[in-house]
């Protein structure tokens, strides 16, 4: 109570000063006073109360009707005071949530982190940027001692926290598969059953799984409804869509996935992405596939990692640095 009393004295002095001088300086001090009051969580009706008390002390002869009108004002402001207090406590809660989410986002980063393998035969560029704090895109590399590089690129439908939780589940399911059955169609079929059993009916996952054999340079792949990737022929400077049919994960338990195989020539590239890349928008205009490809083509002479970095920068600029969706782009290039 003592601080409030002190404030009352202070307020009364300020008010007196202002009425006497009508000076800017006193107004400035009033502003400071209100800032301090906010810091001490003093509500607007309390300040009006202080105002009334100050007036009463300064002008004991104050007419009745002014006194009454001030009391009226005080009553009117009480709801604002309540709203203000609610606002304060919501703000505290929001800060709490924000810090919890950032802890979760960090955990997710650690859980889902993948190391880009260094392989002489294949050059890899990879970039994944979340639109919000938590990433609903996922990519993973596994390189075994037989010289096979496994690449998973996935997109969980739905964004934010639920999508991120779902992704963690998929990652652990994949880790638990026996290494013998690492062919793309087998992996997708197994994951489909996991997702179908465990995930809400409106949530689903698209995934492309590829397996690059660095001994004979063949690329085997299957897709579960994932955004088509591209194959870049260096000799013709042309792209070919890697368009593979396959139902998204989590819709029907009895889905099987066809596996395809392609020979990769020296200098050629495999480009994998999520729909955050192909669904870029500039204002109301959608970016057409040709534009995505021509941007990739314009950087094709660069090292793989620089290609993905530059393409991302291009679309980030185009969309005024506001990502609507998580963005993942992976480039593999046969080196030798």
């Amino acid at each position: 109570m003592s601080t409030l009393k002190l404030d009352l004295e202070n307020y009364k002095e300020l008010l007196k000063e202002y009425i006497r001088t009508k000076d800017e300086q006193a107004l400035y001090q009033a502003e400071q006073f209100s800032k301090q009051s906010m810091q001490q969580k003093i509500s607007p009706d309390e300040i009006i109360n202080v105002h009334i008390q100050s007036l009463q002390e300064m002008y004991p002869e104050m007419p009745d009707y002014i006194q009454a009108s001030l009391n009226f004002l005080l009553e009117t402001m009480i709801s604002y005071g309540v709203a203000y207090q609610e606002h304060q406590s919501l703000r505290e809660k929001q800060l709490e949530l924000k810090s919890e989410i950032s802890v979760a986002a960090n955990m997710q980063k650690t859980l889902l982190s993948t190391v880009k393998p260094e392989i002489d035969e294949i050059e890899i560029g990879a970039l994944s940027v979340p639109a919000k704090q938590m990433n609903g895109d996922y990519h993973h590399f596994v390189y075994d001692d037989q010289g096979t590089l496994g690449i998973a690129v996935a997109d969980v439908i739905g964004k934010g926290v639920p999508a991120a939780l779902c992704m963690s589940m998929i990652k652990y399911a994949m880790d638990s598969f026996p290494e013998m059955r690492m062919d793309p169609s087998g992996i997708l079929s197994s994951l489909n059953r996991v997702v179908e059993r465990n995930v809400d009916s409106s949530m689903f996952v698209t995934m492309f799984y590829g397996s690059y054999d660095s001994r004979d340079h063949t690329f085997s792949y299957s897709s579960a409804g994932h955004e088509p990737g591209f194959y870049y022929h260096q000799d013709k400077d042309e792209f070919e869509e890697i368009d593979v049919p396959g139902l998204v994960l989590g819709v029907s338990a009895e889905t099987s996935y066809t596996q395809y195989k392609k020979k990769v020539e020296k200098g050629d590239m495999i480009i994998l992405l999520t729909d955050g890349v192909t669904e870029c928008r500039q204002g109301d205009r959608f970016i057409e596939q040709e534009e995505v490809l021509s941007v990739i083509k314009s950087y094709a002479h660069l090292p793989a990692q620089e290609i993905v970095d530059q393409v991302y920068k291009y679309f980030e600029r185009l969309q005024d640095f506001y990502l609507r969706d998580d963005f993942t782009l992976i480039v593999l290039r046969r080196n030798v």
Binding site: D155, I157, S201, F204, T206
Partner: peptide, 15 residues
């Protein structure tokens, strides 16, 4: 339509 919309039709189909 984005993928969230697809999710609605998948739910509806299951239903």
């Amino acid at each position: 339509m984005d993928s969230t919309g697809l999710g609605v039709f998948i739910s509806a189909l299951k239903s």
